[in-house]
Design a protein around this nucleic acid. Structure first.
Length: 206
DNA sequence: CGAGTTTGACCAGCGC
DNA sequence: GCGCTGGTCAAACTCG
């Protein structure tokens, strides 16, 4: 597995970030990934609006300086979308938690948490990002031979989810999509820190 | 026995 | 309205 670190953004919160990751934007209209590769990175000073749909905010652009290349990453401002386009509030979403089942399902896809995705070359599907995840579903998506797995953070009151799938064109690449923000610290236990201190050090890697 | 995984069913959204 | 698809649920199952 590749090395990984964490980036912290005032909007996105803390999220894992492989040191040599390749970042690329989410196309919020089709919910698919736009193609972007190391050989075809975004222009250094391009704004998200120029390359993606207007649902992205410039404030979510996170420059990542690697040894010789600049890559960019940003998340989808789903709450903004829901407020401006769908006219739904944060409270509308939370109604689903205790409300009728129909209401819960209705809110399921209308309002999304902030999302962030990246792809890594890895043999294992699930990257060790310091958090504990519980798998709650698996689905074979159209035009891919590899199933997509759905995970939820095991921490109580934490609603962060992630999807893991392999790239159809290159099965060596794992696409991980995080949805939401962790309301807690990574659940690394003392043993982990002792055995693998580098993992803990990378927590503040930037 | 508890925590996590598997898997078929169900539901909402979307395109036609 | 209908069918397809993605996302989620939850019962059954597995594993430590």
């Amino acid at each position: 597995m590749l090395n990984q670190g964490f980036l912290e953004d005032h909007e996105m919160g803390l999220f894992p970030f492989p040191a040599n990751m390749i970042s690329f934007p989410l196309d919020s209209s089709s919910q698919t990934l736009k193609s972007l590769s190391p050989s075809n990175p975004l222009p250094q000073h391009s704004k998200p609006e120029q390359d993606c749909t207007s649902h992205f905010q410039a404030s979510h652009l996170l420059p990542l300086q690697t040894s010789n290349t600049n890559y960019w990453a940003w998340g989808e401002v789903s709450e903004l979308i829901s407020n401006k386009i769908l006219g739904m509030s944060r409270d509308d979403h939370h109604l689903g938690v205790s409300g009728m089942k129909m209401k819960k399902f209705k809110s399921r896809r209308k309002v999304r948490e902030p999302r962030f995705c990246f792809k890594t070359m890895s043999d294992v599907d699930v990257l060790d990002d310091g958090y504990r995840w519980r798998k709650y579903g698996q689905k074979v998506v159209k035009n891919t031979q590899h199933p997509r797995s759905y995970y939820r953070c095991t921490q109580d009151s934490c609603r962060v989810k992630k999807r893991v799938e392999r790239l159809a064109e290159d099965p060596r690449m794992v696409i991980t999509t995080y949805e939401g923000r962790h309301a807690h610290s990574p659940s690394l236990n003392e043993e982990d820190v002792e055995v693998n201190p580098s993992k803990f050090n990378s927590f503040f890697w930037l």
